[in-house]
Design a protein around this nucleic acid. Sequence first.
DNA 1: ATGCCAAGCGCC
DNA 2: AGGGCGCTTGGCAT
Length: 540
Amino acid sequence: MRIVLDRRPEGVAMVDESGSATLVGEAELAAAVAEREAEHPRWVWTDTAQWYPSLLAAGVRVERCHDLKLLDALLALRAGRSPRRDWGAPRAVARGDALFELDDDAPASHLPNPGEVLAAQLREIAAQPNPRDVTVLAAAESAGALAAAEMQHCGLPWSVEAHDQLLTEALGPRPAPGARPERLQRLAEQVEQALGIGRVPIDSAAELVKALRRAGLDVSSTRSWELEQIDHPAIAPLLEYRSLYRLLTANGWNWLDEWVHDSRFRPVYVPGGVVTGRWATDGGGALQLPKQVRSAVVADDGWMLVVADAAQLEPRILAALAGDDAMARAGAGVDLYSGIVASGAVASRDQAKVGMLGAMYGGTTGESARVLPKLARAFPRAISYVEAAARAGERGETVSTRLGRTSPVPPASWRERQAAASAEGASESDARAARTDARSWGRFTRNFVVQGTAAEWALTWIAGVRQRLWRPERGSLPSQPHLVMFVHDELIVHCPEDDVADVTRALQEAAAEAARVVFGSTPVTFPVTVAAVRRYSEAK
DNA sequence: ATGCCAAGCGCC
DNA sequence: AGGGCGCTTGGCAT
């Protein structure tokens, strides 16, 4: 049963499939949704981020939804049209402790009629060559959007005290605004002393290159990998300065002030924010949380963090996509890369890893390129699968994930350069530029099929986990085991100590289920490593 | 004041 | 000549 929520001038209409509509005032919406939730409907709404946070704030958790905006983006990509942008309604966005209303002024009467949009989407899905897959993807994406709102609502448990302590240990006490922490100041002085050319503009990359060259160091940039090659007493303190400076600016006291309140970090997740189907974040940087600060993620008293990681997710996804039985056998244990070594394809785990990553990213140089032929001999199906995706991209064609997310068509400028290069009398430099472009787009489509299908697996995993965890009789979401963090192939559940075993089982069962849902029958396994810890940093 | 870009580096 | 991101800073343009 689907129930469409439609915001109208006179209130919110709840329209079920029989066409019967109930009108409720905004103030009664949460109670009305809670009442109908007992029927396990799939709520249809324009945009989960518009509707769900206020329901959660009112203590209402819903099981299923259909997010029209996410589905429109997906279907538009498949059909080669632009997604519609008139979803309009104000979206309350929590950033830090403030609530920002992003109101784009669209009058309610001009908003799309969600019932009509749904009907059109269902017709469009039914007309696809793979309607079942697209339906699964629709459900998984929508479940992910629910989970994202729930994670923001519950927040990641964060110890301000532990964070402040680690900052103080690394940098020195919090300085006055605008001042340099003691440790940074000392390192900057060490760099100046070692260079012996007076003041060094250490915070400006462009100026720093000039200064280093004046001091006789042959550098073209100040990237850490380039500096590491140089034997000079200024390098070590400079690299350390860089690392600590980054800690200060990206995840220092200012970040703490802005993003952590009431012992919770509440990032804004953006489901579907990446073309491949991965999530993005809007502020807070939750998907790039440096290992340096993970010791500040601390479970509440009496609670634990259950950290689950899908082991070598992407190569396993590739093996399943390609139906590569040999790679499936190599991945039968928990460590696929060791399995590849055991198969005799390559000599070391590092070679296996670098080689597989290169195959999926399109690496063409160094160790990765040297290992690739060996992998291609041992696992021809997997390697030719990504090669085919790359060739398609080089020709300007689109590729598709397992459940049917399609890659975008290359931009007009790309197609123009290809056309120019193949035209009569094209110059050698035009041809070279076009080849470079084509290779680059091929690397994108090569990776798209793997990264995008991995995102589908992960969304399905999330959907299964949140479904298994939920116990309505145990009260509100934050008071029972709940998801608090998702990073592409990793999930964290915050739960009472006594629930660790159940949560662990839920994470593993849902992983196995995700493989069946996404791939049907596949010999490829998707092991999940699980660690129950007090602090995130203890997980690995 | 505001916007945009590049550099650099964090994550997967 | 390695895929996808976000974030901060400095520096230039408007």
